[in-house]
Amino acid sequence: MRRWLTLLATTLLLTGMPVTAHAATVTQIARWEMNEPGGSTRMSDSSGNGLDGQIGGEVRIGGSINGSTAYRFDRLEPDTPPTHPGHLVVVPANPALDPGDRNFAVTLRLRTTEHFGNIIQKGQSTTPGGNFKLQIPNGRVGCYFRGSRGVLQAIARDPINDGAWHVVTCVRVSTGVALAIDGQRVAGRQGWTGPINNSWPITIGGKIDCDQNEVGCDYFAGDIDQVIIETAGAAW
């Protein structure tokens, strides 16, 4: 599958070492197609693992956007009260969604013309057990993992807030983190974050614990039409 090939290629380019396809088995943890009809309140997980999410009342769903059925997250002024919890899609906490010490990849398809916001995350910067997120400050995608051993980020050099659809893959392995956009590696950092496990939900569209004063909610503005989470064994 293309996602598996992207995962392998990204890891190879990050480490500079050969990687063989039989070194680990990829497991799909969650697959959210985000193609529910208007009026739906549940984001369905088509992986078969039952990791459904709750769609906030402010998320626009069921519309055709540049040829794709997607969720639309309207623009909200950064760091400006009040909070908008209805802007989020929330998937309840589940250990399967934690990277732990596994190779871990998040792939999503998005489009935006804005230059800020957290796209998807599990936990926040002070969450016990660590956290991960994809964000898009200045229109440049950033891939962030914080574990017991430290923080690693891979940040794209070029912005993608051009209004076109883009596929983004964010990978954490034992040798570092890497970011691929439209099948091409664009950034990577070597190192080991340590395990990441927390009791927080996954949120799509921004932070769940924020007040827009002391802690900004970093609401994403744009469209998302698919999110996939995959893992592999602890060693390639």
Rank of each mutant, 00 (worst) to 15 (best):
T10Y: 11
T11F: 01
L13G: 08
L14T: 08
P18S: 11
T20N: 13
A23C: 14
V26L: 14
A30M: 15
R31V: 10
W32Y: 11
E33D: 15
N35R: 12
E36S: 08
S40A: 15
D45L: 07
S46W: 02
S46F: 04
N49Y: 14
N49G: 13
G50F: 12
G50R: 05
G53N: 12
Q54H: 07
Q54M: 11
I55Q: 06
I55W: 10
I55A: 06
G56Q: 04
I61T: 09
G63C: 00
S64A: 01
G67V: 00
S68V: 02
A70M: 01
A70F: 01
F73I: 10
R75Q: 09
P78K: 11
P81E: 05
P81A: 02
P82R: 06
H87W: 09
H87Q: 05
L88W: 03
V90G: 12
V90I: 14
V91D: 05
V91F: 10
V91A: 07
P95G: 08
P95H: 13
D101K: 00
N103A: 05
V106C: 03
T112L: 04
T113R: 00
F116Y: 10
G117V: 03
G117P: 09
I119F: 07
I120P: 00
Q121P: 00
G123W: 03
Q124G: 08
N131L: 04
K133Q: 10
L134I: 11
I136A: 07
I136P: 06
P137N: 05
P137F: 08
G139Q: 04
R140A: 09
R140P: 05
V141K: 06
G142P: 00
C143T: 08
F145D: 03
S148R: 07
S148W: 01
R149V: 01
L152V: 13
I155Y: 08
A156V: 00
D158Q: 13
P159K: 08
I160F: 06
D162Q: 03
G163C: 03
A164K: 15
V167R: 14
V167E: 15
T169E: 15
S174N: 06
G176W: 04
V177S: 06
V177N: 11
A178V: 06
I181L: 05
D182R: 11
R185I: 13
R189V: 11
Q190I: 07
Q190R: 14
G191C: 13
P195Y: 11
P195M: 08
I196P: 11
N198T: 06
W200S: 13
P201A: 12
I202Y: 01
I208T: 09
D209N: 11
D211M: 01
D211F: 01
Q212L: 04
Q212C: 01
N213R: 13
N213I: 08
V215R: 14
V215P: 02
G216F: 03
C217Y: 00
D218Y: 01
D218S: 04
A221K: 06
I224Q: 00
I224W: 00
D225T: 07
D225L: 09
V227I: 15
G233W: 13
A234C: 03
A235Q: 05
A235C: 01
W236F: 12
W236L: 10
